[in-house]
Amino acid sequence: MWMGRVVGRLWAARQAASLAGRKLLLVRPETASGAEGHRLIVAVDGLDAGPGDRVIVAHGSRVRDLTVGAEVADQDVVIGIVDGHELYPS
């Protein structure tokens, strides 16, 4: 899993049938020091997260099967919305 911040939502008029109706979030991974990275990942949302939320994203087909369903064509799923976290510089 990794932590990131939801920076937006994604809509697509034309999309694979297996994605239809799924809420897609754009998530920006954070580094271990808490700084935001530069990449964007499209994750399926099963928890009703919104822009600005810090979330935990898990990766893999099994994770996907267990959370949003085996038919969904994405392997990155939001599995938690972060209340708070503590990071200690090492």
């Binding site: 932590m3 580094t31 990275g37 530069h38 964007l40 990942i41 499209v42 392997q75 990155d76």
Partner: peptide
């Protein structure tokens, strides 16, 4: 995994989330 799920930003060589 992020490439498989649709990478939008480009030009980065290292994974942004080193955690």
């Amino acid at each position: 995994g992020e490439i498989a799920s649709g990478e939008i930003a480009s030009g980065e060589t290292a994974f942004g989330a080193r955690h």
